[in-house]
Simulated scan of single mutants.
Amino acid sequence: MNDLFHQFAKRASDASGSPWAFAISVFVLFVWAVTGPFFHFSDTWQLTINTASSIIPTIMVFLIQNTQNRDARALHLKIDELLRLAEGGKSPFINLQTLSDDEINQLANWLSAIIRSNSNSQDTSDSH
């Protein structure tokens, strides 16, 4: 079932981001607006678009989030593999996404200090 959902989420995400999906949405809104006078702009007529504009985005959030989570995980794995190959498996940046927020902040501070130290040493060497 998981694979079936992933496949559906990927296809739905791809389809919803297409120009055709946008064109269909505009067409549906146009048809809804044009039919307003026919239904005398009734509460039911308004409720139709209100319901659709609530339900569809809610479902799409879950589908798109699933796709983004899978894409982000794949990207992390690719970057980890590149770091492993470049650093011989010794890089502190491998599996960074599994660290706690405090550990990420510590690593960010460490990296900032290295960058500042490198830029300071370049500044002093440039002045000599």
Rank of each mutant, 00 (worst) to 15 (best):
M1Y: 06
N2W: 13
N2A: 11
D3Q: 13
L4K: 11
F5G: 01
F5R: 14
F5W: 15
F5V: 11
H6Q: 15
H6S: 14
Q7H: 15
K10L: 15
K10H: 15
A12V: 12
A12Q: 10
A12T: 12
A12F: 13
A15C: 06
A15P: 00
S16G: 03
G17T: 01
S18F: 01
P19C: 02
W20E: 06
W20F: 10
W20C: 03
A21W: 05
F22V: 10
A23K: 04
F27W: 07
V28H: 03
V28R: 03
V31L: 15
W32F: 09
A33H: 04
V34I: 11
T35M: 15
G36L: 09
G36W: 09
F38I: 13
F38C: 04
H40D: 14
F41L: 04
F41G: 02
S42C: 02
D43W: 15
D43L: 13
D43I: 09
D43G: 14
D43T: 14
T44F: 09
W45C: 04
W45T: 07
Q46D: 08
L47I: 07
I49Q: 05
N50I: 15
N50W: 14
T51L: 14
T51D: 04
S53M: 15
I56G: 02
I59C: 10
V61M: 10
F62Y: 15
L63D: 04
L63F: 12
T67Q: 14
T67D: 12
Q68L: 14
Q68M: 11
Q68P: 00
Q68N: 06
N69W: 02
R70A: 11
R70V: 10
R70Q: 09
R70D: 08
D71P: 00
D71K: 10
A72T: 01
A74L: 06
L75E: 04
L77Y: 04
I79N: 04
E81D: 05
E81K: 09
L83I: 00
L83Y: 11
R84D: 08
L85E: 05
L85V: 06
A86S: 07
A86T: 05
E87Q: 05
E87S: 13
E87I: 00
G89A: 03
G89N: 01
K90P: 00
K90L: 04
S91D: 02
P92S: 02
P92Q: 02
I94Q: 01
I94R: 01
L96D: 02
L96F: 13
T98R: 04
D102Y: 02
I104E: 05
Q106N: 08
A108P: 00
A108Y: 07
N109A: 12
N109K: 10
L111H: 11
L111C: 05
L111A: 09
A113S: 08
I114C: 03
S117N: 10
S117T: 07
N120I: 06
S121I: 11
S121L: 13
D123E: 12
D123F: 07
T124C: 03
S125R: 07
D126N: 08
S127C: 02
